[in-house]
Each structure stands twice: as structure tokens, then as C-alpha cells.
Design a protein around this nucleic acid. Structure first.
Lengths: 336, 336
DNA sequence: CTGAAAGCGCTAACAA
DNA sequence: TTGTTAGCGCTTTCAG
């Protein structure tokens, strides 16, 4: 390896080596026009000879563009990251950013410190754009982001307003799919355990459930409100069993909750899917391994990340992309 | 589209508003000494009045410090991120960085583009420090990082050399723990399914297994080499069963593989842990939910991230921290 | 097509 | 304790 790595090679050095002015060198680097072929080649040679790499900071200062975008995850609960969801989104985002010169800055806003930083970032434009995944519905940061001067795209939709630019999974459609499947397989007394109703994923899935039952002309009254946790899913199932002992199926708004629910169901002596069919949501890795394996709704998580990044790029380029809703699909396994 | 430009409040404006020189203002901002109380307060007032936030880019250019560190994950396989491991490390890292002014840049180096960028970064100091998790042993990037001018701390250890600064989980100790547990519960014909031997986690866990058996005076010859995947775990178990039908326990170097192995074991009519005891490694969420629940070795993943970040901070501050090996612990469940 | 010169916003050495 | 003065490395008018 060449040992030019000691001190940084500057543009001036390149220019001198190539025997041209700094501006000419600059033009070549940014392949701008108005440079003779001869000079262009001389500069290129100097660049490889010297191992020149432009100083991103200086460039950022001169162009007033940071060269970095932020993936911000705002949540009141650091626990959410135990979920592979986050990682997969990041992979998707990264895959499209890799094609550009942009860096990816990660901003987990769980503590108040983290939130303050995100706020400042939004106010002072320390990034060229922000992708914000807000894990609870009425996040003040979400509002602030929407008003910000910095281009922002949302992952998922806040509950209290509809952002201008977002990409979301089709939670409602997925829930409808799941419930329709239950109807199609002969179930008639279909209950649901909802997610947190302060998250749009929670409300949307509940709506999907209602819609499907309305279309089928079935009663949508067997409802217990859950919290997305395994623990909570179990409790909800107990309550459901007590209030509606006749149920023959349950659509559970997350796999975690479904796992808890299945445990309770088995404890109560119910067979799955014989007595009660169960469908979950998310298709986490665990779903394949439950007893019986869990029918569930899969979301295109990596695509979500990818599309968020693409949308942000478009925004930065001055375009006006339209919001996106990505399709979900039913994954049938033995529990229904 | 909305006009995303807005002028930023500069230090000069603050200085003027406060009626002091720019250097005085600067000193206050960085709370340096040599400023009279009166001026200090005047500046502070101006700052809040104007809503001044320093321009990080300009500061970076002037100080020659980027104000950001990189968490780089180098792997030939984008799939590794499906693992929550990555997310948890990031959370740990973030938690300590949150206490500082440093940003966290994520660099997933799976594609050659990503690797090139990481290389450039290492060569040209576009970050104040790098945390490198290298997922396969003889990663050329690892060598490059070690030679780099930029402070680097490794997560896990490469197979082909020992870096100066690293934090790793005690894979060897964990494997020994697991195997000793098997010995202590009366098993005598203990097999192992190893991980990939081009990853240090793979070789270290294999060594731990060997050590424990050597100490116990038992035969350590029932070995099949695996690849950390569920699929591979199943195949390895088949081979093991064919070659060593007398085995009464198996230490499997990852939970994923253990799950595959348990499936094969059951198919072969073996009871767990009656006929064959099984112990895994990692304590993934799934381990709690297998049938029977999987005894496994837990690693302190978040701590790993936290300690990496702390070590990097120390390095940046000019200290010489010592490498760290974090303890693992046995989580006993029904499979052993 | 080419190069000189004026910044981008901040820090830091040096005088005063 | 103050303020003045150079830069940090790059981009970008603006004349030539």
C-alpha cells in the first residue's frame, strides 16, 4: 500500500503535481465542464499518483451540504431495538445509500439527550435529510420534523397527523387479508387482540379486521386491546376467553402477542387450530417455530427501508415523490 | 416543493448582538477561560435569543476533528443483519455516544462499494474513530484498519491476528461452561457441532469444548463442523448421529444450529434431554420457545457495544485502554 | 477554456 | 482579559 496516508493530500497538491490551477483540478474532480482533455488527464493521473481523496468536511462547508442523512428512531422504549425490525430497515436504507456519496447517521432518540439532539438536528440542518421512524403515535418530534426545513420522510405514519412524505406497510390490508382468510376457512366467531392504539400500526390493523368482518357480515365485537407484548397477548387472550367463550378464531395484531395467546389457549385446553384458529402479524423468525407454526402477515421490512431512502433522495433532489404503501402478504402455516 | 433553505445563525451575529468580539463569543460557546463574567452572560443571552447552534461542519474543518465515529460491520453476507445481534450492539454503542457530542455513522460493508468506502474512510480520516465488527476471520479490511491512522477498536477478534484494541465476548469460557454443565449432569459421550472455523467465535467455542472435556478426561472426538445456520445444524446432527450413534449430549455452537439439530434429533426418535442433552450458544429470543426450551450461553451483547464505544472514546482521548473480554453465562432451560 | 480571489463558519495563535 | 488575524480544504463566481 502506498504510504501517502500519513497527511491528507490536498487539492492544491494535486493541482501543483498536475501543473494546473486549483480550480481546474476541482473541476476535474467534480467532473464539471470547461477543462481541456489534456489537463483533465493530467489531473487524473496526479490524483491516482497521490492517492487524493477529497476532504468531505471542507466540501460540506463550501457547498453547504452535509453529505449525510439521518435514520432516526424515536421511541420511549429502548427495548424496541431488540426487534430485528430495526436492523432490517437499516439494511434496506443502507443498500440504496451505498449507491450515493451520502453517509448514514444513526440517531436513536430514546433518552431525552437523544431527543434533544434530534431536535437540534432538525432545527439546524446538520444533515441533508432525515428518515424518521416514530414508534409511538403522538411523538412531538414527529410534528417538529414535519415542520422542519430539512427534508423528512416518515417510516410508518404518526397517529395524529398525516405527514407529507412517508412510506408505510399496508397494515390495514394485511389485517384484512388475515381476517378474510379466517372467514374463508369457515370461522364465524372471530375475535381480535389489537396492538397499542397509540401506534398507527395498531389502529390500522384493527380497522382491517373490522372491514373484513363487515364485508362478511360477521360480528366484530370480540375485541380486547393489547400492547404488542407477549405478556399482554396472554392476558388479552384470557380476557377474551372469559368474555367470549364461543370464539373459534382470533386475529392477533403481532406475533409476540400471538405467542402469548397460544400459550393461554393451550392452557385452557383448546386445540389450535381445531378449536381456535390463530393468525399473527409480522412474520418474525419465531413464527416458524411455534407449536403449531403460526400463520401470520409478513411485511416487506427491507423494502420499507429501501423506499424510505429512495424517497428521501428524491426529496433532496428537489422532486416531490408521492407517499408509498407497501403490500403485505399472508404466510399460511398450521395455526389456522 | 417547500423551500428547505433557511439562513443559519452565525457566531458573528451572536458576537455582534452581545457586543463582543467573535473570539470572545467562541470562548464562551466552548466554555474556555479568559472571559469576564459580564461578557459571558451577554453572550449566553444572545445565544438563546438568537437560537444559535454552532455549525458542526465549520467546527470540524477548523479543529480537524470530524465529530463522528463509525460503526462498521464488514461481512461477505448481507444476511448477518437479520440477526438482532447487530441491532443490540448498536444500541449499546449509542447509549455511550449519547453522552458525548459524537455522531454515530453506520457503515455496512457488504458490497464492494461499501468496502471501498470503509477503506477510504480508514485512509483519509473522515471519522474520529472506527469500531469494526468483522464477521469473517481473514477480512482484509481488518488488517487495513489495524494499520490505519484512525483509532480503531475491534468487536470480536479476527482469526489471523490479534488487534491492539478489542472487546470480545468470552466465547471460549462460555463453551467451557456449557460443556462442563453437560459433564456435571452426568453426560459422558459429549459431541459438538462447531461454528464456522474462519470466525474466531467458531474456533474459540470449539476450544472451550475441548478444554472442558480434557479436564474431565473425556473423549473430545465427536465433532462435526457446522456453519452457524439452522440448515447446517440439522445436517451436522445427522452426520453426528450416523458417526457416533452412542452420543448422549451435544454442545452446539449457536442456537440457530441447535434448533436444526433438535429437529433432526426428534425425527430420529431421540428424546431431549432424556436420550440426548442439547446446549446452544447466544441465547437468542427463540431459545426460550423451542420444544423443549433450549439451555444456552448468553453473551452481553449490549455491553459489548457499550464497551467498544467507551474504549474508542478513551483511544480518542489519547489513552491506551486494555483489551476487554466480557463474561458469558449459562442459561439453564429444559433441554439439558 | 483557464485561473485568481473571495468566501463557507469556526478555531486558535498571537498581540495588545 | 481582550480582539485581530490567519487559516482549515474546497467550491464558485468572475474576469481574462
Amino acid at each position: 500500500m502506498t504510504d501517502h496516508s500519513r497527511r491528507q493530500v490536498t487539492l492544491d497538491e494535486v493541482a501543483e503535481r498536475a501543473g494546473v490551477s486549483r480550480s481546474a483540478a476541482s473541476r476535474v474532480i467534480n467532473n464539471a465542464p470547461h477543462v481541456s482533455k489534456a489537463k483533465r488527464e493530467a489531473v487524473q493521473r496526479a490524483v491516482t499518483d497521490l492517492g487524493y481523496v477529497p476532504n468531505a468536511t471542507a466540501r460540506a462547508l463550501a457547498t453547504q451540504q452535509v453529505g449525510a442523512v439521518v435514520l432516526a428512531i424515536s421511541s420511549d422504549n429502548p427495548q424496541v431495538f431488540a426487534d430485528p425490525f430495526f436492523a432490517e430497515v437499516a439494511v434496506g436504507v443502507n443498500s440504496v445509500l451505498e449507491e450515493t456519496e451520502l453517509e448514514l447517521i444513526l440517531q436513536l432518540a430514546t433518552s431525552s439527550r437523544g431527543q434533544t439532539r434530534l431536535e437540534q438536528l432538525l432545527r439546524t440542518r446538520q444533515a441533508d435529510g432525515v428518515m424518521l421512524m416514530s414508534m409511538h403515535g403522538d411523538d412531538p418530534l414527529a410534528q417538529l420534523a414535519e415542520k422542519s426545513d430539512v427534508p423528512v420522510v416518515f417510516g410508518g405514519t404518526p397517529t395524529n397527523f398525516e405527514p407529507q412524505y412517508y412510506v408505510d406497510a399496508d397494515n390495514r390490508g394485511g389485517a384484512r387479508l388475515a381476517t378474510e382468510h379466517l372467514v374463508a376457512t369457515g370461522r364465524r366467531r372471530i375475535a381480535t387482540i389489537t396492538g397499542r392504539m397509540d401506534e398507527s400500526a395498531g389502529t390500522a390493523r384493527y380497522k382491517g379486521y373490522q372491514e373484513a368482518l363487515a364485508v362478511a357480515g360477521l360480528d366484530a365485537g370480540r375485541v380486547v386491546y393489547g400492547d404488542f407484548s407477549e405478556e399482554g397477548g396472554g392476558q388479552a387472550m384470557e380476557q377474551l376467553l372469559a368474555e367470549h367463550p364461543d370464539l373459534d378464531a382470533v386475529f392477533v395484531a403481532s406475533d409476540q402477542m400471538a405467542i402469548g395467546a397460544m400459550r393461554v389457549l393451550k392452557l385452557a385446553g383448546k386445540t389450535i387450530p381445531g378449536d381456535v384458529a390463530v393468525v399473527g402479524f409480522n412474520d418474525v423468525a419465531l413464527a416458524r417455530h411455534t407449536e403449531p407454526p403460526l400463520t401470520t402477515v409478513a411485511q416487506p421490512i427491507q423494502s420499507l427501508g429501501r423506499e424510505m431512502a429512495r424517497m428521501l433522495l428524491a426529496l433532496i433532489a428537489g422532486e416531490s415523490p408521492t407517499p408509498l404503501i407497501l403490500p403485505t402478504r399472508l404466510v399460511q402455516r398450521a395455526s389456522s
